[in-house]
């Protein structure tokens, strides 16, 4: 699972930076195209939910998602890495 912030929904309130026990969210520095300063993710792979959600089959922790007033935080399935053969033509 990969943690992501939907930049089209986030309004930059920084509430998520308060609640994460791992302090994954850091107040952002640069405004995006909509003029919103979206928080930055600091090593999101530490999130309990990313690591253990599939194992337990339910949402763990999830505090950031619950407190986010703009429903911007979600987890997406990571696609498995498939090695590709590249044919090189000379």
């Amino acid at each position: 699972m990969r943690l992501q912030i939907d930049e089209r929904r986030c309004k930059g309130c920084n509430l998520c930076t308060l609640v994460c026990p791992y302090r994954i969210f850091k107040p952002g520095k640069r405004a995006n195209l909509r003029g919103v300063i979206v928080p930055e993710l600091d090593r999101p792979e530490r999130c309990a939910n990313c690591r253990l959600r599939d194992l337990y089959g339910r949402t763990l922790c999830g505090m950031c998602q619950m407190i986010c007033p703009d429903q911007a935080i979600s987890w997406v399935k990571e696609e498995e890495h498939v090695p590709k053969k590249v044919a090189i033509e000379y």
Binding site: K11, C13, V36, M66, C68, P69, D70, Q71, S74
Partner: peptide, 28 residues
Amino acid sequence: EEWLRQDRLPHIFCAGCGNGTVINCTLS
């Protein structure tokens, strides 16, 4: 997420307004 009307989001509440959080809790 399926209880939300995706086409209406983002909602019009101000940045950081707590109403969105209460919607999350109620839907949960």
